[in-house]
Structures are given as structure tokens and as C-alpha cells.
Simulated scan of single mutants.
Amino acid sequence: MYCTNQYLRLGFLILTTFLFAACGNNGEQADAKPQPVHFASGDECHVCGMVIEGFPGPKGEAITGKDQRVRKFCSTRDMFAWMLQPENVNRAHTLYVHDMAQTDWQSPDDAALINAREAFYVVDSERDGAMGPTLASFAEQAAAEVFRKKYGGQVLSYGEVTLEHINTEMPKGDMHDMGDMDASAMEQ
């Protein structure tokens, strides 16, 4: 009888140790941030549906916490347009953008992806991204200031960017000009 109790206690101790260890690992994995995902040929922007490859300027991506779903954006402007929507603004998505001090504007290298919430952004600069105006992203405020001095604009932290900063007019020659047409021109 003594031997059976000893085995039961030992089994219980091993089982308890295993359960505590398993719970500890799950907590560590839940706290770990997912790594950035490289942009691949054929990836489409989650906001506008454009193929991302081949466009200049910084790109963005959002990775959801629970299911690790990756949403990719052709520009930082589209990433902010999505992230600042009421249903997304308070979610703790992991966000990445290109550090434009570390990569080429015309073809950003995914090795330069950085935490978007810790980045600095230049809004209203002369440099265009995938669909026109974009937010140039930088890991360091000093690099953002150098860019601002060269191309204009204003330096902001992630938390300072608002929908007003990304809602800029589309370039001339777009569909805004449709309003200038009279009814007779549209009938032709």
C-alpha cells in the first residue's frame, strides 16, 4: 500500500510539473511579437487591392494578435487609413513599416522593416509612394528630420498621426475632374 501511494504522489508531482511548464510556455508565446513578413510577388494591398510589388516608398503591414493574420499595405498611408478606423484603432496589432533611412525609396528592402509604433513619420513631403502622397517612415527622429529638410513636410510620432494627415487630395487628372463635366459630355 505504501508503494502505491508513493507512485501516485510521484505521478501527481510529475503531472503537476508538466502542467505548470506547459502553461508557462503558452504565456511566453502569447507575449512574443510576431516577426515581420516579407512582401512577396503578387501580394495585394489590404485597403486598395493593388499589387504591392514595384511601387516606390515605404510599405506597411499589420499582424493580428490571436490568429497571426497578416495584412499588407502598398503604402504607409494605406496602413494608417486602415489602422485609424474605429474598429481597429484600439487593437493591439503588431505593425511594421520600412525604415527609409536604411533602404532605397524606389525599392524598399524588407530587411529594413521596423516597429511602426516606435517609428517617426514625415507627412506632406514632396516624395510620393504607391498611390501618391505617403508618410515617410524612420526608426530615428534625426533621420526623419534630415528627410524633412530635404523634401518638406512635418515630423510626427506614430501616436500623432491622424486621419486628417492621410486624407490629402488625389493628384490632378483623377476622378475628381469628373465633377467638372457637364451632362452633354457624359452622353457622348
Rank of each mutant, 00 (worst) to 15 (best):
K66S: 15
K66V: 12
K66A: 15
D67V: 13
D67N: 15
D67Q: 14
Q68T: 15
Q68F: 14
R69G: 10
R69A: 15
V70W: 02
V70H: 04
V70F: 05
R71W: 13
K72R: 15
K72H: 05
K72F: 03
F73K: 13
C74S: 15
C74T: 10
C74A: 11
C74M: 11
C74G: 09
S75Q: 09
T76G: 15
T76M: 11
R77Q: 13
R77I: 07
D78I: 10
M79N: 12
M79V: 13
M79P: 13
M79A: 13
F80I: 12
F80S: 10
F80D: 10
A81S: 15
A81M: 11
A81F: 13
W82S: 07
W82Q: 05
W82Y: 13
Q85E: 14
Q85S: 07
Q85M: 06
P86L: 11
P86C: 08
P86Y: 07
E87M: 02
E87C: 03
E87I: 00
N88G: 10
N88T: 05
V89Y: 02
V89G: 01
N90M: 06
N90G: 10
N90C: 00
N90R: 08
N90W: 01
R91F: 01
R91L: 09
R91P: 00
A92T: 07
H93Q: 05
H93D: 08
T94R: 09
T94E: 02
T94A: 02
T94D: 01
L95Y: 03
L95I: 01
L95K: 00
L95T: 04
Y96E: 02
Y96V: 02
V97I: 03
V97M: 00
V97T: 03
V97P: 00
D99W: 05
D99P: 06
D99T: 03
M100C: 08
M100H: 07
M100D: 10
M100P: 09
M100G: 05
A101Y: 00
Q102P: 02
Q102A: 10
Q102M: 09
T103L: 07
T103G: 04
T103Q: 07
T103P: 07
T103K: 08
T103F: 04
D104R: 04
D104T: 07
D104C: 00
W105A: 05
W105R: 05
W105S: 04
W105P: 06
Q106M: 09
Q106F: 00
S107V: 02
P108K: 00
P108R: 00
P108I: 06
D109S: 06
D109R: 04
D109E: 11
D110C: 04
D110M: 11
D110P: 00
D110E: 10
D110Y: 02
D110T: 03
A111F: 04
A111S: 14
L113V: 01
L113A: 04
I114V: 15
I114R: 04
N115F: 01
N115G: 08
N115E: 14
A116W: 11
A116M: 12
A116D: 12
A116G: 11
A116E: 11
R117N: 12
R117K: 15
R117C: 13
R117P: 03
E118Y: 07
E118L: 12
E118T: 13
A119P: 12
A119C: 11
A119S: 15
A119R: 11
F120R: 03
F120E: 03
F120T: 06
Y121R: 13
Y121Q: 04
V122H: 09
V122L: 03
V122I: 11
V123H: 09
V123D: 10
D124A: 15
D124T: 08
D124I: 03
S125E: 13
S125V: 13
